[in-house]
Amino acid sequence: MPHPHLPSGIRSRQIDVATGLNMHVLEAGEPGRPLVVLLHGFPELAYSWRKVMKPLADLGFHVVAPDQRGYGRTTGWDARFEGDLRSFSLSRIATDVLALVQALGASQVHAVIGHDFGSPVAGWCALTRPDVFRSCVMMSAPFRPAPPVGASKAGPPPFLAELAALERSRKHYVWYYSTAEANADMQNSPQGIRDFLRAYFHVKSGDWDGNRPYPLKAMTAEELARLPTYYVMDQGADMAATVAPFMPTPEQIAACSWLTDEDLAFYASEFGRTGFQGGLNWYRCTTVPGMQTDMELFAGRKLEVPCLFIAGDRDWGIHQTAGALNAMEAGIPAYRGTFLIPGAGHWVQQEAPEQVMDVLGRFL
Rank of each mutant, 00 (worst) to 15 (best):
H3A: 14
G9M: 05
A18H: 03
V25D: 06
A28I: 06
A28R: 13
G32R: 12
P34Q: 15
L35M: 10
V37R: 00
V37W: 05
F42T: 07
P43D: 08
P43K: 09
E44M: 09
Y47W: 13
M53S: 08
K54I: 01
A57I: 01
V64N: 01
P66T: 01
R69Y: 00
Y71R: 07
F81T: 07
R92C: 10
I93Q: 04
V97N: 03
L100D: 04
Q102W: 09
G105M: 03
S107D: 12
S107P: 03
Q108K: 15
H110E: 15
V112S: 06
T128Y: 00
R129K: 13
P130A: 08
D131T: 10
S135W: 01
M139W: 01
F143G: 04
A146N: 03
A151S: 11
P156N: 09
P157S: 07
L160P: 07
E162I: 02
E181M: 07
A184G: 04
R194Q: 14
R198Y: 09
H202C: 03
S205A: 11
S205F: 07
P215A: 07
L216N: 11
K217D: 13
K217Y: 10
T220R: 08
A221Y: 03
R226T: 08
R226Y: 01
P228H: 05
T229P: 07
V232R: 04
V232A: 06
D234M: 14
A237D: 15
T242E: 00
T249G: 04
P250N: 05
Q252W: 06
A254W: 03
D261Y: 11
A265E: 10
R273H: 09
G275I: 01
Q277S: 07
G278M: 04
G279L: 00
Y283A: 02
Y283N: 00
C285G: 10
T286H: 15
T287N: 12
T287K: 13
P289S: 12
M291F: 07
Q292C: 10
T293C: 05
A299L: 08
P306F: 06
P306D: 08
I310N: 00
A311Y: 06
W316R: 11
I318R: 11
A324F: 03
G331N: 11
Y335C: 02
G343H: 03
V348A: 00
P353T: 08
P353N: 06
E354L: 12
M357Q: 10
M357S: 10
R362Y: 05
R362A: 06
R362H: 11
